[in-house]
Design a protein around this nucleic acid. Structure first.
Lengths: 139, 139
DNA sequence: GTTCCTGCAAAGAGTTTGCACGAAA
DNA sequence: TTTCGTGCAAACTCTTTGCAGGAAC
């Protein structure tokens, strides 16, 4: 999970600062999407100087440049972020413990043709969230 | 699209008030999910006495009783509501004009078996949102 | 008569913005 | 030296809450 942050920022004409370095470093360590609030806490835990406004602004900038991805969790009703992953995936979300389990299956493979031909709709993106009870939280 | 509101409320042990009557009446007329704010405007346009708090509280109550359904639109970043529909459906959302086009296809039919056997995950619900450009908004 | 719903005002969470200073290129 | 990013404080949006009066049952 090592990424060259300096290089990524340079490629996008973004200045390399210790705040941005720290943000991307923490995100690279995550196995699942996290909220801005959680990210903020993680950054402060490691004694990183970080202002919430700065964090929000960085997240916005990274999102616009496709460096990170925003997703919404309807279970917790929160916006989450993650590094733009190399391969597309969706998540199973546990209603009880909120664990997010990535799955490789994507419904769009078969849906795309159906939609574009039946609705003259040009698909750009999609979100799929499956909620339920994970292995350990089942009654 | 005529529903017996008095009966529905009674079935759920909810009191029948003119505010609730108006809310459900307006929702019954919608062809696509709307935000609480839009619903509020529609209600006031018809000179309905309605307080935002009351509206939020009603929406919450109706949602808990399964009378309405909440969905999130990642395009507009807003929470939307609609009457619980008799048949399950998902939407195509236009990035440009925000129009929502219902589709009948649901990926869960084929996904369910795969998920439950591979992840020991008990699926309860799911959300699918497909964004892109509608017929009239395509470049 | 009792229970529940409503309106009002105030508070709360999450997020955005203006501005001046400071760091990166 | 110029441009861009940061911190701070204040504002803003959406939503929730406490309370007292009033409507529904």
């Amino acid at each position: 999970m090592s990424i060259n942050i300096k290089k990524i920022l340079h490629q996008h004409n973004l200045k390399h600062t210790k705040q941005r370095e720290a943000i991307l470093k923490v995100l690279a360590k995550q196995k699942a999407p996290i909220s801005v609030e959680e990210l903020y806490d993680l950054l402060r835990q490691q004694a990183q100087t970080m202002n919430l406004s700065t964090l929000y602004r960085s997240v916005e900038t990274f999102s616009e440049h496709g460096i990170i991805e925003k997703i919404f969790s309807s279970i917790t009703n929160t916006n989450l972020i993650q590094l733009q992953s190399r391969h597309h995936q969706h998540y199973l979300v546990c209603i009880n413990c909120h664990k997010m389990i990535p799955i490789d299956y994507c419904p769009m493979d078969e849906l795309l043709g159906y939609i574009e031909s039946n609705f003259h709709f040009k698909v750009i993106d999609h979100q799929l969230e499956i909620s339920g009870y994970c292995d350990t939280c089942q009654p």
